[in-house]
Design a protein around this nucleic acid. Sequence first.
DNA 1: CGCTTTGTTGAACGGGTTCAATTCGCGTGG
DNA 2: CCACGCGAATTGAACCCGTTCAACAAAGCG
Lengths: 243, 243
Amino acid sequence: MSIQNSPLVRKLGAYVSLSEPELEILAKFHKNRRTFADKIEMVYEGQSSPSAFILAKGWVCSYKILRSGGRQIVGFQIPGDFIGLRSVLFRTADHSIEPIQKVEASEVKVKDLLGAFQTCPRLATAVLWSASSDEAIVVERLVSLGRRDAAERVAHLFLELSARLKLVGLASATSFECPVSQYHLADALGLSAIHINRVLRELREDGLLTFRRGVVTFDDLDRLVELSGFDRAYLDYEGPMLN
Amino acid sequence: MSIQNSPLVRKLGAYVSLSEPELEILAKFHKNRRTFADKIEMVYEGQSSPSAFILAKGWVCSYKILRSGGRQIVGFQIPGDFIGLRSVLFRTADHSIEPIQKVEASEVKVKDLLGAFQTCPRLATAVLWSASSDEAIVVERLVSLGRRDAAERVAHLFLELSARLKLVGLASATSFECPVSQYHLADALGLSAIHINRVLRELREDGLLTFRRGVVTFDDLDRLVELSGFDRAYLDYEGPMLN
DNA sequence: CGCTTTGTTGAACGGGTTCAATTCGCGTGG
DNA sequence: CCACGCGAATTGAACCCGTTCAACAAAGCG
């Protein structure tokens, strides 16, 4: 895959139009490609000097473990996403990161990243933009956990994932591959896996969506949007905002 | 107050040591001081080309309204905090912002901000750092809403606020002024105001903390930290990380 | 082919909500 | 100075969404 078509460039290019030298730097970041097996932490909470990664293939989730034993998944990352940027900036990981399936990712050193910011300020702006976009996603999930019921949460999460996957060409209008288990969904949405199961059945029987064998299919997109209060605009970008 | 002692400089300086020209730019941002009355939105969801602000005095909250009528408060901002940065970057506000009491804030234009990034890349880095710190706070609240019960949520929020207020010199070791109502707490923590009231009573009767007449007092800090699973480190910075 | 992980279903329980009513604190005007 | 009004705080009782415990089925994998 050429650098122009990599998921990362596709994403950052949506915020800031990138020039040759900037593309070169990003190309350099794409070296050091490594493979990680699923269920083995890439970063663990409390780790010092953790690495950041650019995810090239496969999904990972970032989460926190509570003393009580519970787990809260903060988000799912898909190809093109930065992983662990915050942890790198703060020198200590404030959350763990685990592949959901076998993944490929490029390691990015703090020094290289901050160095690139000095050379190409526009890159810093693009990354700030990307980080803000990630925050918008976390905020939207916060709203889900705070004020939406179980069915609304599930519908909203799948719509969010669909929108993000479409951006990097990994989802069609009504369907996408989704490698997460019902336990993942439970830990992401603040519910029990048992209840997730029941809600998925209801959504299926109501003709809203089907999640089976790692594939999500929207059976009635309009009603899903209506049910979950999903804002169709919130992950839509119409060309670079900084030229 | 000199620019060196403003809450904003105090905060950004914790991430990146700032040079003269950088301080000058920040000083310029501090012009345009405006006053806002409480309960009147400074920014409303969906607003196009909203302004960003640097909060100088008083508290505000940012929130989203759901079609169902419910409200989810995403966070409370205190003096020194950036407000609406994300909305400015995306040209459209994805949340509303409302003063909790009468506040003073300086307006910051997108153009000036992005311009400053070109001139002073270190400033872009500092703002990225600050934004990452804000995200860490949102993530921690996400964990609360997902996996902590009502008493843990309340305790954790007050400990978080205390840590942030201490950074800008607005809290003592065991007490701080907190202008929010029980309705604010409910909307921030995904609970009903009625339940917040009961939980506050329990915390008080158990000798853990007292919230009365706009003042929070920690009656037993250690047990509060233990109860809520608060990470004492997560808002602690030990000097600039970029010199 | 056996074992582990994931998915599925039933029944009892419980934390938190909702509805309804009362009280407190405090600024405002008579 | 007191009556009034209004938002915020309190309390009680019934209800419900989602949990927990327990069991079993299905799918994936070495």
